[in-house]
Design a protein around this nucleic acid. Sequence first.
DNA 1: AAGCACTGTGCAACTAGTTGCATAAAGCGT
DNA 2: ACGCTTTATGCAACTAGTTGCACAGTGCTT
Lengths: 181, 181
Amino acid sequence: MSLPHAILTALLEKPSSGLELTRRFDKSIGYFWSATHQQIYRELGRLEREGAIRALPSQGATRGQKKEYEVLPAGRAELARWTAEPQDPKPLRDTLLLRLRAAAVVGAEGIQEELRRHLDLHRRQLAEYEEIERRDFPPEKDAVEDRLRHVVLRAGIDLETFWTRWLTRAIEELGETAGAG
Amino acid sequence: MSLPHAILTALLEKPSSGLELTRRFDKSIGYFWSATHQQIYRELGRLEREGAIRALPSQGATRGQKKEYEVLPAGRAELARWTAEPQDPKPLRDTLLLRLRAAAVVGAEGIQEELRRHLDLHRRQLAEYEEIERRDFPPEKDAVEDRLRHVVLRAGIDLETFWTRWLTRAIEELGETAGAG
DNA sequence: AAGCACTGTGCAACTAGTTGCATAAAGCGT
DNA sequence: ACGCTTTATGCAACTAGTTGCACAGTGCTT
């Protein structure tokens, strides 16, 4: 149950319409909590019904008309409650690892290219994060909110670094016994 | 659609009943693809209907009676196909990161303990993986299947190492500006 | 003013995963 | 023979996320 909270966070950062939120979920918040526009519209409706957010009065209510939302006190309180609540990390679920395990019983044909392809994707993502860090977090920005956001970005960077290293090593090590199965 | 493939892999490693699979999903394969017994039974039924697996003939078909399954050629072929198929890594979805981001707008009360708690959990998991590595992968084991499985375990170890380091650093850095928000 | 592309909102149906509970047989103590 | 615990299988209902598509207004182009 995190999507509503992701939306509340995004709306507190800046009141937005559904489409604007969708675009912001394609970067920034979406880097660690992705969502499609359908999920977002559905959730906006639910949050409005529950009194957590409301449409800014200026906007008309018809289709095809932009509708901006802002967070109400009840929504902010719920977000604060959820943020401080203990939640266990959810267990890892990764198909690439699962496929390597499967390759151990049905043969490793084709896995090598897949590892290389993933390495490339993770390198790109890493470069993107590092670019954002350079742009958004110069050393002089040091308010608490900046620190929190920076630490989150740091997680993204370190995670992609982990993947690139692990993939590099895996490719090397499995390459030594090439077309085996 | 990975659960059926996880089950096929587990069954190829060793024919098992639903409950045995459930136990094995609590460790080993479950470390990177978890599943509850209900998911497993449902999927076993589906795979049997589709002709990917079959119940070993010796077992009766009634409730409360153990029913062991083995993989049929069609199942093995499907697993091999799926293993070699290109699949993009799925985007990260992590509530702790989301909550840190939320803390930047609603205040960081309570987050510090949560970070410490997670650090502890990740340290335990890391220790568990390292124990398995010591036990199951002595240097002389070097067949291809062992290498593949070892590389997968290595991913678990490196991933937990990343989390412990990142959490340690985050706690330090946010601690400097303690009860802020 | 007819056609078209773009912006924006939204429903419906589907797939995957979770939670809670029901049922059946076997083993064991009394 | 009775109830209790353990092993084992399974259904039903729910929650979350995905996919495909429909519909409405705006503004540009010819």
